[in-house]
Simulated scan of single mutants.
Amino acid sequence: MKQIFFLLTLMMPFVMKAQTLKPGYYKSQDGYITVTVNQEGDAINMKDQAGDHVYRNEGGTYRNTNPKYSNFTINVVDADHFQSLKNGAGAHTWTYSGKAPSAEDFVKDEENEEDCEMAQRYMELAQKGGDDTQVNTFCGAAALMKCNMNAEGFAEYARQTIASLKQILVNPGVNPCTDVFTAAQWSAN
């Protein structure tokens, strides 16, 4: 038994390296985010709402080549699944969907661009400090999720975020980030 385990342990790196992802679309484990993946040799090319990313093989783990995102890695599980990690933790499994994403999977580029820019503005306001730092952080995080999620995913995220945000506001009836949450979202939560 020990010999079989030893042999399996020795073979694991070769099996892991042999895995190649199918080219196509992959959905996040919650189903809210879709990315395009194409693996060529020792590189995995990924396109998401935020742009294009290249991950290079480093002994079975693929690391983002952009120094800004070098703490993001990918582990190939099999031809239909990969895990994304940040700082080696918090594995999120992605599953091959094969088909082109629907309109709900990707936010239109113009809207996506606006939401991403809005997230940046809120984060800059939060970094300046002041009485609204915590509110601006919530609004910035929500805008970032709106930038990266489909409508269904953002609706769920908005519900949870609005409930948390209302707990810290002096006047929870007033939406502090009307450009992120609609009036209907705010009043429903």
Rank of each mutant, 00 (worst) to 15 (best):
Q83F: 00
L85P: 02
Y96T: 00
A158F: 11
V174A: 03
F138V: 06
E156I: 07
Q83C: 01
T137G: 09
V76H: 11
N112A: 01
V170T: 15
G98D: 00
V135Y: 05
R121A: 07
T93G: 05
K86C: 14
Y122Q: 03
A103Y: 04
M118K: 15
A89T: 13
E117R: 05
T137R: 10
D115I: 03
Y96H: 00
A126N: 04
V76M: 01
I162H: 06
G173F: 05
M145A: 15
N87Y: 09
P176G: 08
F82E: 02
A142R: 05
L125H: 07
G140F: 05
D80L: 00
M145W: 06
Q167N: 15
E111N: 05
Q167F: 14
S164V: 06
D131T: 13
A89W: 09
E113P: 01
A91R: 08
V77E: 03
M149H: 11
L144K: 13
N175A: 09
D131E: 15
E124M: 12
A91S: 13
C139S: 04
L125R: 14
V170M: 14
S84V: 14
E156P: 01
H92W: 12
V107E: 12
L144V: 04
H92N: 06
A151V: 04
P172H: 12
A155H: 04
G153W: 12
A183W: 04
M145T: 13
A143M: 12
H92E: 14
R159Y: 09
Q185K: 01
K166A: 11
P101H: 02
F181K: 09
Q160S: 15
Q83H: 08
A158K: 09
N171E: 06
A184F: 00
E152H: 14
A142K: 08
T161R: 12
I168C: 10
T161I: 04
A100S: 10
D115L: 07
L169T: 04
A142H: 07
F154K: 13
F181E: 12
E114N: 08
T137E: 10
A126M: 12
G140P: 06
G130L: 03
N112W: 04
N171V: 08
C116Q: 06
N148C: 05
M145R: 15
Q160C: 01
T95I: 00
A103E: 07
G130K: 03
T95G: 00
E114W: 00
A163P: 01
M118F: 09
N136I: 03
E110V: 10
M123W: 11
W94Q: 02
L125M: 11
T93R: 00
P176L: 11
V180E: 07
M123Q: 13
D179E: 15
G88D: 13
C147N: 03
T161Q: 12
Q185M: 12
A158V: 10
F82M: 09
D132V: 02
